[in-house]
Design a protein around this nucleic acid. Structure first.
Length: 918
RNA sequence: GAGGCUGUAGCUCAGUUGGUUUAGAGCACUAGCUUGACAGGCUAGGGGUCAUGGGUUCGAAUCCCUUCAGCCUCACCA
């Protein structure tokens, strides 16, 4: 057989992914096994794979593959999110480029464009996940806007409306002037920005000599003012209260009122009140019964109410009004000012507070439920500290109702209808529109007939609410709807609650919290006696944000992110998986150090960590080549090989044992590093070197005994299975190279190895031998003696060293790996040797060069000083009576042993020193 | 303004309820190796007053407080 001396990920990755898919290994159906379920955080249907996805999905794949190897029924449900604002914005832009305006299209026309686009480009990201090796059950791929999931949205909307938790109200909402829709509070991102504070003088009506100066950073809204407010205790303005002021430029008269909301210290102490364009002013206005003058259109331009600058954009108007105020002499002062400005998460437009009619979900009960679920441990957070953030948002002082309506078309239309009256308007009660909510128009009609007391109404008299629901109003149902739980609970009762949710902490409010709420709201109603738990998932593993070495979030716009697929191209999927994982711990942000091109300042598609992963694959590949290159014969197993086999089995079991514990706490990078060390250092550097047959020249080696060979293949197989969740492709490939396999005998469907009983004494003896070998090598290095030159080693006769060398295979191990020609026990220190200590055993290495006495003296003196310091430290502890009396006995005993060892070592070093000095 | 997280080797990080020979790994660095699986390799080495100052304790990287630095969340801001 001839294998290339480099592992080739490209070939094997496509080959094995296709093989796994062909064998239907990713698919899950309910059966008698224990389920292990993960629902993917659905990426935007139009998204492309980025570093965050890579991290996230690598972790999910590790958990899923491990569960599968453990014999569980592993089910990883993939899918995409329709991402209403983001996708609609993209489609609108695309149509505009084709010369089509959204406003010229009907709703249905627009939606067919959007679906066409989604069908063409959507789901690309899922294809990209396959490159990463994600073992999702692709047959179960879902989309938040497909029929069954949309039906569920309508169902829960109607249900919540019936329960009195959904209401429609006129509120100050965050308005996105670009997308022309309301936003929830969570969709507003605040950033500090430089701005100016305008000090503007308003004349007092009837006395043009008197004026009042207010400070504002939004001068373009003065035309919407309906009062000026001052603090009741502010002496400066007492005489003006009750008088009227005139708005500059338009000379509209507004009252001067007093309100404790005003901060005397800030600005001029006088505050213009603009109820239509500021949430706080709106409240002040309500308290004082002020009129609301709205001077802005939905797109952020000024309307006729403004009287001046009509049609101008708000920011253009700001510049223009500055000039007008300067000319009129009303602009008294300009002050630099920094303030935080809200932007739309999706379009980045500056958010405008706007008074609009929107649908809200009452969050009070939901929030309490959400808090309880985590507090009582039904949902566990990893890391636990995420609770703080969660609590802050959900506690009753902070929680706010969820604005769930959006003025968009791409999404689930709100199932509410209004009755059209004879004059073409909507039927009202006490001046308020009445909405009839129902699962179908007929249901709504039934309601309408009763409420309006008119039996002649037909569906033609009803007009449907134009709005759609917030994207998250569909994704909060994801753990239920991916199993069609609102229609049929057959699968839900098997898979619910899911096991682990893996997601970034940035969507803890948007998504995680709300899924928990939805789970508690409906799972019991749906499952009843079959309910295994109300929580949608037992554990939440929060990944950190992937950042660059300057700690900036990796993003396309910054150009600081390597291209995910290019990385896979360069290092292989396994290499990238290794790289991602080796720098990640739960909850902490991940610094993914990828070098930058010094010229373009863009990230290169390179990574040291991924390179390490690639090298690791290569290392394992070459271990395979080595083993497969040996000749095998039915000869007796030498003691050194027997020792090696017993040791590597124990070592592997120890690592496996620790891995179990780490896995249970989601310490995945610990598990991976354990495997890495085990394979590279223990298996390749020690084990294989030990059993490696001697070279006899002419490219030939002695044959290996069959027993050792079989054991080696067995251990290698075990290593591949336990590494498989992390690096699925290379392990599968090696698995198949190790032995001829029957169809279906694949690495990914083996059983996870279980740790056996460990011979601690053997492991300890082996470690001692390793130490002796390392020290021999160190002396060779220091003295410039070639590793090829065989040396003589003398061992001082003592209980422990005799015991060590008596252990089967140890002597042979020392001779082989230390390259010794002789190993002899002595009572006296032989001449012309270099002495060293290993444990409390004393060793003498014969070197055929002249010993530099001075250097030896220096080395031994340093060693001596170390032990003196060490003994002093331990001695101090032991002479402290309180330590001896208070510390647990085993701790004290250990310290005594440390002291005894230290003293013995010191004695041995001093002995050598004396000898040297003579 | 309220709250949270982090600070350990040049870099990225471990260090699990305080006690495992006066702190570990990988990368980077240094020295040696035409080694017959692998130079994407092998062998060895140097490098840390565990941010700071206190406290609790027989014992602190680990627990408590101070200060400093970085990051984050929420709220408010005329």
């Amino acid at each position: 057989m001839s294998l290339s001396n480099r592992y080739n990920p490209k070939e094997t990755e496509t080959k094995w992914y296709a093989h796994w898919e062909k064998n239907n290994y990713f698919h899950s159906e309910p059966d008698e096994r224990e389920p292990y379920t993960i629902v993917i955080p659905p990426p935007n249907v139009t998204g492309v794979l980025h570093m965050g996805h890579m991290l996230n999905n690598t972790i999910q794949d590790i958990l899923i593959r491990r569960a599968r190897l453990q014999g569980k029924n592993a089910c990883w449900v993939p899918g995409t999110d329709h991402a209403s604002i983001a996708t609609e914005a993209k489609v609108v832009k695309l149509l505009r480029e084709q010369g089509i305006k959204k406003s010229d299209l009907t709703r249905d026309e627009f939606l067919s464009h959007a679906f066409a686009w989604k069908d063409k480009y959507g789901g690309m990201i899922l294809q990209q996940l396959k490159r990463l090796g994600a073992s999702c059950d692709w047959e179960r791929t879902r989309f938040t806007m497909e029929e069954s999931l949309s039906k569920a949205v309508v169902k829960v909307f109607v249900d919540l409306h019936k329960k009195g938790k959904i209401y429609r109200g006129l509120r100050m909402t965050n308005w996105d002037v670009e997308a022309l829709t309301a936003l929830s509070n969570e969709e507003v991102i605040y950033r500090d920005e430089h701005s100016q504070l305008f000090h503007i003088r308003y004349d007092i009506e009837g006395d043009s000599n008197e004026g009042i100066i207010i400070a504002t950073q939004r001068p373009e809204t003065i035309m919407a003012d309906t009062a000026i407010a001052v603090h009741p205790d502010d002496e400066r303005f007492k005489h003006l209260i009750g008088k009227n002021a005139l708005i500059p430029l338009i000379n509209r008269s507004i009252p001067i009122i007093e309100d404790t909301y005003v901060d005397i210290e800030f600005g001029t102490g006088a505050l213009k009140i603009t109820p239509a364009h500021d949430p706080n002013d709106y409240e002040v206005g309500q308290r004082h019964g002020l009129e609301v003058v709205d001077i802005l259109n939905a797109n952020g331009t000024l309307n006729e109410n403004a009287q001046i600058l009509v049609g101008e954009d708000r920011f253009v108007a700001r510049k223009k009004i500055k000039k007008l105020l300067e000319e009129s002499g009303n602009l008294v002062k300009l002050e630099d000012y920094t303030t935080s400005i809200g932007h739309s998460e999706r379009t980045d437009a500056v958010v405008e507070p706007r008074l609009t009619l929107q649908w809200y979900l009452d969050m009070k009960d939901f929030a309490a439920t959400g808090l309880k679920a985590v507090k009582n441990g039904e949902v566990k957070f990893y890391p636990e500290s995420m609770w703080n953030m969660y609590y802050q948002w959900l506690n009753e002082d902070n929680i706010r109702d969820w604005c769930i309506s959006r003025q968009l078309w791409w999404g689930q239309q709100i199932p509410a209808w209004y009755v059209r009256t004879a004059d073409g308007r909507r039927w009202t009660v006490d001046g308020q529109e009445v909405a009839f909510v129902g699962g179908t128009v007929e249901e709504a009609l039934g309601e309408a007939k009763i409420k309006t007391c008119s039996n002649n109404l037909t569906v033609k008299d009803l007009v449907r609410d134009e709005d759609v629901v917030d994207t998250w109003f569909s994704s909060w149902l994801w753990p239920i709807t991916v199993f069609d739980g609102f229609e049929n609970t057959d699968e839900l009762k098997y898979y619910y609650p899911t096991n682990t949710l893996v997601t970034g902490w940035d969507i803890i409010f948007f998504w995680v919290a709300r899924m928990i709420m939805a789970g508690y709201e409906w799972s019991e109603e749906l499952l009843g006696a079959d309910l295994k738990g109300k929580q949608p998932f037992n554990d939440v593993y929060f990944t950190g944000m992937v950042r660059d070495n300057k700690r900036r979030k990796m993003s396309k716009s910054l150009g600081n992110s390597p291209d995910a697929l290019e990385l896979i191209e360069n290092y292989g999927a396994d290499g990238v998986r290794f790289g991602m994982l080796s720098c990640s711990s739960a909850g902490n942000d991940i610094i993914f150090d990828a070098p930058f091109d010094p010229v373009t300042k863009k990230s290169l598609n390179e990574s040291k960590l991924c390179e390490q992963g690639r090298n690791f694959c290569n290392k394992m590949w070459n271990a395979l080549r080595l083993i497969k290159g040996w000749e095998i014969e039915d000869v007796e197993q030498p003691p050194i090989n027997e020792l090696a086999v017993r040791w590597i089995k124990d070592k592997a079991d120890t690592v496996m044992d620790n891995a179990e514990k780490s896995f249970d706490q989601y310490r995945l990078s610990d598990v991976l590093m354990g495997q890495y060390q085990l394979i590279w250092s223990d298996f390749c550097s020690w084990y294989l070197e030990m059993i490696k047959p001697a070279y006899i020249g002419d490219g030939k080696s002695k044959p290996l005994d069959r027993k050792t060979y079989e054991a080696t293949i067995g251990v290698f197989e075990k290593l591949m299975v336990s590494l498989h969740p992390f690096m699925p492709f290379v392990t599968e490939e090696i698995w198949h190279q190790l032995r001829q396999r029957q169809e279906g005998n694949d690495c990914m469907v083996q059983s996870y190895p279980k740790a056996g009983k460990i011979d601690e004494e053997l492991v300890a003896a082996f470690e001692k031998a390793k130490d002796v070998i390392s020290k021999i090598r160190e002396i060779r290095n220091n003295k410039g003696i070639s590793p090829n030159e065989a040396l003589k080693l003398f061992v001082e006769k003592s209980g422990p060293s005799e015991k060590l060398l008596d252990k089967g295979g140890i002597k042979e191990m020392l001779m082989k790996l230390g390259n010794l020609s002789e190993l002899t026990m002595v009572n006296e220190e032989p001449s012309n040797t270099v002495s060293f200590l290993s444990g409390t055993g004393k060793y003498f290495l014969e070197v055929n060069i002249e010993i530099d006495a001075e250097a030896e003296l220096k080395r031994l003196t340093e060693e001596k000083n170390y032990y003196i310091g060490f003994i002093k430290g331990v001695g101090k502890k032991l002479s402290n009576e309180r330590f001896v009396n208070n510390a647990p006995a085993p701790v004290v005993e250990k310290e005594r042993q440390k002291l005894a060892d230290g003293e013995e070592k010191l004695r041995l070093v001093e002995e050598s020193l004396e000898k040297l000095e003579v």
